[in-house]
Structure formats: C-alpha cells, structure tokens
Design a protein around this nucleic acid. Sequence first.
DNA 1: TATTGTTATACTCTATAACTATA
DNA 2: TATAGTTATAGAGTATAACAATA
Lengths: 141, 141
Amino acid sequence: MATATQDTELVGSLVQLMHVLQDLYAETSRPLGLTPQQAHLLCVLLDGPLGMTDLSRILSIERSSLTSMVDRLERRDLVARIPNPTDRRAFQITLTDAGLALAHEAHNAYTTQIEKRLTDLPASHRKTLITAIATITGHAQ
Amino acid sequence: MATATQDTELVGSLVQLMHVLQDLYAETSRPLGLTPQQAHLLCVLLDGPLGMTDLSRILSIERSSLTSMVDRLERRDLVARIPNPTDRRAFQITLTDAGLALAHEAHNAYTTQIEKRLTDLPASHRKTLITAIATITGHAQ
DNA sequence: TATTGTTATACTCTATAACTATA
DNA sequence: TATAGTTATAGAGTATAACAATA
C-alpha cells in the first residue's frame, strides 16, 4: 500500500534527521567548550531560572544526574544556585553573566548552522514544516 | 521581516523536534536493555557488516570510543568481530543472531512510537515532510 | 609511511538507592 | 508523609594520545 510505504520512509527520514541534528548540535557545542547536554541546559535557562526538579523534567534526566551537571557548570561560573526564599529546600538555577553570554553564543551558533541547511527550502515548505513538526512534537501551533 | 521570523521559528521547531525524538529513542531503547547509542549501532549494522573505521564514521564517534562500545556488545553476544580475510589488521563487525533479532525489535519499536505521532498528519504534509527533510539532511530524495 | 584497530587515561553523562532537610 | 535536592556508587559514552600490527 502506498500510504504504508510513505510512512516507513517518513519514519526513516525523521530518525536520520534526528542524527544529523544531533551531530550538528555536538559539533557546534564543542568549540564553545560545551557538551551538547550542557548547551541544552544553558539554553533552557535562557527562558528564566528553574528549580532542580523542573529542570530535570525539562531535560528528561534524573535529579541526581542533574546535580552533577549543575556542579560542573557552577564550578565554571556559568550557572548559580540561588536559594529559594519561599522554600528553604529549593534552589533556583540561574545563568551567570558568563553563562548568559555563552548560552546566547551557543544558540546563535546552532541557528546559523541549521539555517545554512534551510537555504534550499522553498517558503511554502517551511510553513508546512513548522506545522507538521508542531503536530509531531504535540504542541499547539 | 516575515521570512526571518519564520526561519527563527523553524530552527526552534527543528531543535525541539530533535529533543523529542531523542527522548523517544531513549525511552524506547531502555526496555530492550539498550542505550540509544547501542541501539543506533545495532540498527546501522542491519544494512550489513562494517569495519571499525567505517562504523565510527557513520556513528560520528572516535574509533577508540567505538572499541569499548563493541567490546560491551560483543560480551553480550549481540555483535561479533569477524576477521577480514583480505586485510589482517581489520575486522568486520557483524550482528549475531541475537543482535539481529534485537536490532529488528528496536527498529520496530521506534517505528511504532514515531508512527503514533504521525496519525494526525495529512498525507500532503507527509510528502512535503519527506522532501523537506531530505533537503535538510542533504540527501537525494 | 599510512592505515586499522587497541590501550591507557580522564572526564562527562546517566540511573538507582539511600539519605538530609524542609514542607 | 511528601517533596527538594544531595551523596554514593556503578556503568556507559566520549575524546586524546600513544601504541602494535599490517598494508
């Protein structure tokens, strides 16, 4: 059946796209002295400080794994643990000035690299892509 | 400018899609007793045996990193190092029967999970997606 | 000389289980 | 009791540098 074949092809395309983007993400992070995971963490914090539990949920890692990641970034003065005034158990993980600058730098670098790969894409396809991806990721457009 | 805004939105969509697919890949590998990297390796070998150098290039990792990955998979009898008859330095990394079965299982699991997310996607969007992704990943359609 | 693959080493990522402090 | 975060531990992924064997 034609539809089934197209589905299989699309799934393969998506997996391949994931790997291509992963490689690009890693290659772009490296010269900035960041692992892809560290870059992801910093970029998430661009939207504002978060507690450990929220951050671990967004990054899809255990809180204990996050503890050591934050330790390493804090040692490099890229993030800081700010005590939460309303809950003495909790912290707000915040970007330092250096962390903010590096997060912007990483974000710009990815954007530049990905945009390079979009140059051959017609405007109509871009619109469809945005809508289709929103459907796949399960978010409102 | 409208185009610039759409570009930014598309880049963000692609990065988010990457993370969603990564998480899905990890969650699907786990119950099979595989890390996402191990699953990737096994699935690459579905297309046939490969030497260490080729495999490291396809997986975008150093040969020395691959050595330890193959060690672990070989210990579990999922892959085997077959001596290359024409080059006594080289091996062909091959799926064992168990590895082949597990690679198929992993592949089917991803396909099922991803297809679940494609149900709401109109057929016309699927066709466009396949073409657009091919452009991004830089492959012929 | 160049290439194939490994070893040694160091660091990061990650999970599980048990824990402390606070709510 | 439940939640926020940490510690201890173990295993996996990764890179760099140096190496042995073969081409």
